[in-house]
């Protein structure tokens, strides 16, 4: 059986911070990243903060924490409800990797980070995706959300980049 490989020709990078990021910190970094033209998709990967206590005698009662937070990236708001460990970016081309590295270098001052290149977003639909989205699924949706989640991905609209300075091709900033 042949499988259609989706968006494999787009480079992907993963930013792993040494410490798990709170939503406020993640929001700050994302707002710097979305200013960079050429990022197709952003995937946040981290540990879930459940809405209700999932196990034990207290199962079912509301999980009151100060971690849950609605963040605003660009002009779009979304609820992330997790501590973020990795930020995965899919790029139009690898010329902006150096720019992203510089943004991260300036941003991570209290703790470090590692940037890697590879394939981090699921490239092909699985059986679960087929059951959820059907045979004509949008390729850009695949791998972007947990198929069991009722929430879909959030679209962040880009501004016109007519006034932005030309970005020089820099792609020698990877580790791992």
């Amino acid at each position: 059986m042949s499988q259609t490989v989706i968006s494999s020709h787009y480079p992907q990078i993963r930013i792993c911070s040494i410490r798990m990021m709170k939503p406020e910190t993640c929001e700050g970094l994302l707002n710097k990243l979305v200013e960079i033209p050429g990022i197709r998709r952003i995937l946040l990967h981290g540990q879930n903060i459940p809405k209700v206590i999932p196990y034990g005698p207290a199962r079912g009662i509301e999980n009151v924490t100060d971690i849950k937070r609605r963040i605003t990236v660009g002009s779009t708001s979304c609820d992330i409800r997790m501590l973020v460990g990795d930020i995965i970016l899919e790029l139009e081309d690898d010329c902006i990797i150096g720019v992203i590295k510089r943004v991260c270098d300036d941003f991570f001052v209290k703790f470090g980070f590692v940037m890697q290149e590879g394939t981090f977003i699921k490239p092909t639909p699985t059986m679960v995706d087929y059951a959820r989205y059907g045979p004509k699924a949008d390729p850009d949706i695949i791998g972007m959300t947990d198929p069991r989640s009722k929430e879909g991905p959030v679209m962040i609209k880009s501004r016109e980049h007519g006034n932005n300075p030309e970005i020089r091709c820099e792609n020698d900033a990877l580790e791992g």
Binding site: R19, K22, N48, I49, P50, I53, T65, I67, F111
Partner: peptide, 11 residues
């Protein structure tokens, strides 16, 4: 986590 605490889903 950022403040040096071990991750706890129910804080």
């Amino acid at each position: 986590s950022e403040d040096g605490m071990q991750f706890d889903a129910i804080q």
